[in-house]
């Protein structure tokens, strides 16, 4: 049962920030509530005031900015992303990802900002956005700032965001020519068991740059630079990737995997290798199509 709380419904971000300041330590941002209310119900957290972000125009909407980057408002739901034609055009991998987050009830209610700020280590978007080099825009009592997503997640359930800051938007750079971005996961129950995201760029007939991220395997989603290095320089030919993929899988096997209900650390390492193969191939075919 959720202990009683006050619900504030500010009309703008600045009003929201003022409300937060008034409520002090006792307030929390409230978006879809799919995590927050659960945590309160379980008695793990108690807040006197919930400040509803869903109505803030600054956090709504999906757009492409002047630089061509994709900008997704912090209070946009999974379902809205899944159905967005803009995202479908700019970052098709994210549409596919969102379509398989949780179940339709959670997708309809839960937001991407809530997902990232809650920082549950089994996050689909967090892993993909890491590989995509995204950054987040925050706005709090001390003003606005931008943080790269790489470094945003500090520990399970802990981010670099301060409690008073609102995640306004997620910004994902436009794909360069010859760039492909793909995400693959193994999922046995609600959340991913392990997932791997790959962003790579081809020039001529070689992969010239690759970034690999893995999620649900270590205590927070991480990039695996050695796996990216293993792929960079490889031929842009899916049938000729055996050795680089094996080296990438080995690099992932070095990570400090954490076993959970979906499987032991060993099994997770194995899955990461499997997913690296499929994600790399998918990224490569997108890259070749964009070259």
């Amino acid at each position: 049962m959720i202990p009683p709380f006050a619900l504030a419904r500010p009309a703008s971000v600045s009003e929201a920030i003022a409300t937060f300041a008034d409520a002090g330590q006792d307030a929390a941002w409230y978006a879809g509530g799919t995590e927050l209310l659960q945590v309160m119900k379980m008695g793990l957290a108690r807040f006197g005031t919930l400040i509803d972000l869903k109505g803030l125009p600054e956090l709504r909407g999906i757009a492409v900015d002047a630089s061509g980057a994709l900008v997704i408002g912090g209070a946009v739901t999974h379902r809205e992303i899944e159905r967005s034609s803009i995202v479908g055009r700019e970052l098709p991998g994210l549409v596919g990802l969102e379509a398989h987050v949780a179940n339709v009830r959670v997708r309809n209610q839960g937001t991407i900002g809530g997902n990232l700020c809650f920082a549950e280590p089994h996050s689909d978007p967090a892993t993909f956005l890491l590989a995509c080099d995204a950054h987040v825009e925050l706005w709090g009592a001390g003003g606005a700032r931008e943080l790269p997503i790489d470094g945003f997640f500090l520990e399970p359930f802990v981010t670099a965001r301060t409690p008073d800051e609102i995640l306004l938007a997620i910004v994902i750079p436009k794909a360069a020519a010859g760039e492909g971005r793909a995400y693959e996961k193994a999922k046995f129950r609600e959340r991913p068991a392990v997932s791997v995201a790959v962003r790579l760029r081809v020039a001529g007939d070689a992969i010239v740059e690759a970034v690999v991220a893995v999620g649900s395997m270590t205590d927070i989603p991480v990039r695996v630079p050695e796996a990216g290095t293993a792929l960079a320089g490889a031929p842009a030919d899916p049938s000729a990737l055996g050795a680089p993929l094996a080296a990438g899988a080995e690099a992932m096997a070095e990570l400090d995997a954490v076993g959970d209900l979906d499987g032991s650390a060993d099994f997770k390492r194995h899955l990461a290798g499997v997913l690296l193969r499929s994600a790399t191939r998918a990224a490569l075919s997108e890259a070749i199509a964009r070259a």
């Binding site: 193994a186 046995f188 068991a193 979906d262 499987g263 032991s264 099994f267 194995h270």
Partner: peptide, 8 residues
Amino acid sequence: FTPERVWR
């Protein structure tokens, strides 16, 4: 017969 048991 979880994926891990099958894999093992």
